[in-house]
């Protein structure tokens, strides 16, 4: 299943959510920000090389890291040379090997933000409670609806608890992830919080989002509609 982690604004925690979800689901995370990479890399092959056809997608995945990662390239020339629409067949290829392909989508409303939503089986919308961020999340939610992609879950990041107003506006099952030093420190090291000797609380929050996605995946396999899928919400 291809899950695109999106949200209109930058800096709301899409990369953190992507990495931690990929860890919880034992999936691969693809840093799809073609212009400004968010996840760490090591000088090896990147998504730019994959999109330019220089390397097979599966060979570019770092399998020896804590979480399987296909990093984004960091050079401007690389970003210029790629064909953004080639991302979608790449994601399809990865989903033949990995049960869960988590796509860390870029902020904004350009083609590189829209294409991973088109490719996805469902999306996870990340927002923080600030009004400006929520407004962008609403726009991303509308975009996903227009592109025909179901909402798998809403992550209310940096919030102690879920909010009814957010559910009312965005729909879908909501999980709140509080600000936590352990999450921040793990992300700085390119690690999911579950790989550190951490407080179990934040790990559980990501696990609830993962559970929700497992349900979506199971329902997709059996062809039943999910109650919180919010296709028509």
């Amino acid at each position: 299943m291809i899950v695109t982690v999106c949200g209109g604004k930058g800096g709301v925690g899409k990369s953190t959510v992507s990495l931690n979800l990929a860890a919880a689901l034992d999936g691969v995370v693809v840093d799809a920000d073609l212009g400004m990479a968010d996840l760490p890399t090591d000088g090896g092959p990147t998504l730019h090389d994959v999109l330019a056809g220089r390397i097979d997608p599966l060979d570019a995945v770092r399998t020896d890291w804590a979480v399987g990662v296909l990093p984004a390239g960091r050079s401007l020339a690389g970003a210029r040379s790629v064909e953004p629409a080639e991302l979608n067949p790449v994601l399809e290829t990865l989903s033949e090997t990995y049960e869960y392909v988590i796509v860390d989508a870029p902020a904004g409303f350009d083609a590189d933000a829209a294409l991973p939503i088109v490719a996805a089986d469902c999306c996870v919308l990340v927002t923080t409670p600030e009004p400006a961020t929520l407004a962008d999340a609403v726009r991303t939610r509308s975009l996903a609806r227009e592109l025909g992609t179901d909402l798998g879950a809403v992550v209310l990041n940096r919030a102690a608890q879920t909010r009814d107003a957010v559910t009312k506006t965005l729909g879908g099952p909501q999980v709140a992830v509080p600000t936590h030093q352990d999450i921040h420190e793990a992300q700085q090291s390119g690690l999911p919080v579950s790989y550190t000797d951490a407080d179990p609380e934040p790990v559980q929050r990501f696990e609830s989002v993962a559970d929700r996605l497992r349900t979506v995946a199971r329902d997709r396999r059996t062809g039943t509609l999910t109650t919180g899928g919010a296709k028509n919400s």
Partner: peptide, 18 residues
Amino acid sequence: TRSTARSFRDPRPPRSVF
């Protein structure tokens, strides 16, 4: 994919950068 790519702005840096 193609129609989506067409209807959104190109995310690539402009040629003039190079």
